[in-house]
Structures are given as C-alpha cells and as structure tokens.
C-alpha cells in the first residue's frame, strides 16, 4: 500500500533486464572504487619497462600501457575519482535545485525573478569554453573543474524543479494546506519534495552521466586531474597516440566511461518512469 520502491518491486522479474545489467555494472564499479587496494592485481603507478604496450594476457587482463603500467589496475584505481566527481556535482545539483527550484516555483514573485535571472545568466555563459579557460588559467585542477562544472550544471536542475513545483503549487491539496495554516517551509519540504522526487532522481542521473563525460573530457584535454594520476579521461588521451597499435589501453577506459554513463541514465529513467506511472494510474 505504501509507495516505497521495495514493496512495489516485490519480484525481481518486474525489473527490466537492461536495468538489472546496469545496476550490476554500477555495483561492480562502486565495489572497485571502495576496494581498489585489495583487488587491484598490480600497483597502478608502477612502471614495468620490460612489459610495455602488452596485449591482454593472463596476468595483465587488459594489457599494459606505453610505460608498462597495468591497464586493469589503473582502471580500478581511476574508478574512485570517476565516481566521486560526478557524484559531488550531481548531488550538489540535487540539493541546490531542491532548495532554490522549489523556492522559486512555490514562492513566485520577486524571489522567483531573482533566482531565474541568476539561472539565465549561467545559461548565457559558454559552458565548456568557460570551464577550459577557468581551469587552465587558475591551474585549479580537479577541484576547480568540479566547482565550475557544478555551477554550470545546476541551472538545468533549478529550471526543471521550479517547473514541477509551480504545477504542484496549483494543486488543491497544496492550497488546502495553505488555508489550514501549514507554514510555507513545511509545505515545501514535507509535501512538495516527496511528490516531485522522481524528478529529482532523474535529474541526479542525467547530471551524473553528464558530469562523468565532461570531467573525462577535461582530463582528456589535460585539464582537471594531475598528470600521472590514474584517471579514465587521462588514460584515454595517454593511450590515444598508440590507439591503432595498442588499442586496449585506450579503449578500455573509453568503454568503461560509456558503460557507466549509460547505466546511470538507464536506472534514472527507470526509477522516474516507475514513479510517474504510479502517479498516473489514478
């Protein structure tokens, strides 16, 4: 009777196969991120000049790179950074949009105007270019990249959340709560948030995937992460020169990025559909 995910998905077979596979991928990558030291077969930083540009072997599962570092171990070592950055960006997007978006949508008037002017300003910025300039000029590295991407990312979330909050505001149940004297803040966080959270989750997933790709792109360009750190984007660019001779080194991080991004999106979509369908079934 209650709307928790657990009680609704009583049987695993109700979940589409693609979502199960996506969850498995995410679980594996998260596990790798947490247990990196214990499962990594080699030291990801160790150069073995006797074993450069290897094809996959029984000990080097994904071969080795130009400097003889084990690709698989570096992939594992990079997973933590690959998850944390996008997570922080997506999470801050979620929190900020839940606060500002709902506030703008619910309050309306001058506060709404103010917030939306700010959003418009960010929209007007040339996003990627700005990120590249800021990160390279400030030499801010990874954290600066996170900050800039986080600020750029939040505008989309705010707009979406504002839109759905505006819809909620017009519903009789919200009006009844106002008439009965429930304070504004309480209506926002106790009534609007629970009713729009499929949207928040969907936003989180899109943000995460987008940030993963953007951060990898920055690393690929040599911005963001420090040289030498096992970062998926950087591995991609390091491997690129020898793409045709030693494609394992370049392709494995690329494929992993795509897999993770697609998986997160798939799950986000599914959770969103699941709840929206629920509310449409009336």
């Amino acid at each position: 009777m209650t709307l928790t995910l657990r009680s609704r998905v009583s049987k695993l077979r109700d979940v589409p196969g693609s979502v199960l596979v996506a969850s498995l991928i995410i679980i594996i990558i998260c596990f790798a991120a947490v247990a990196a030291q214990f499962i990594s077969p080699f030291n990801p930083m160790e150069q073995d000049l006797l074993a450069v540009s290897l094809k996959p072997t029984s000990s080097h599962w994904l071969g080795s790179d130009e400097l003889g570092r084990d690709v698989f171990s570096r992939l594992i070592a990079g997973s933590r950074g690959a998850i944390i950055g996008p997570f922080l960006i997506a999470f801050s997007g979620l929190v900020v949009s839940a606060i500002l978006g709902i506030f703008a949508g619910y309050r309306g008037g001058s506060i709404d105007n103010l917030i939306m002017r700010g959003v418009d300003f960010i929209v007007a910025l040339p996003g990627l270019l700005l990120t590249i300039v800021v990160v390279s000029v400030t030499h801010g590295g990874y954290w600066m990249a996170l900050l800039v991407l986080g600020v750029l990312n939040v505008q989309g979330d705010i707009r979406i959340v504002r839109g759905v909050s505006l819809e909620q505001r017009k519903l009789p149940y919200i009006e009844a709560l106002r008439v009965v004297g429930v304070p504004r803040w309480r209506i926002m966080y106790k009534h609007i948030v629970p009713n729009i959270y499929p949207i928040l989750i969907a936003n989180f997933a899109t943000d995460f995937a987008g940030a993963l790709v953007a951060l990898s792109g920055l690393s690929f360009l040599g911005l963001g992460s420090q040289p030498g750190t096992p970062d998926w984007g950087r591995m991609l660019s390091d491997g690129q020169p020898s793409l045709f001779t030693n494609y394992w080194a370049a392709l494995s991080p690329g494929i992993t990025i795509v897999l993770l991004a697609v998986s997160v999106n798939l799950i986000g979509d599914w959770v969103y559909d699941f709840y929206s369908k629920k509310s449409l079934q009336r």
Binding site: P172, Y173, A176, L177, V179, N195
Partner: peptide
Amino acid sequence: IVFQDPYSSLDP
C-alpha cells in the same frame, strides 16, 4: 475550504 476534485485534494 473543501475543493471539488477529491483526487487532487489530498497529498498522495
């Protein structure tokens, strides 16, 4: 006040 539409007058 009590509204018309019983389906949207309560927080689901």
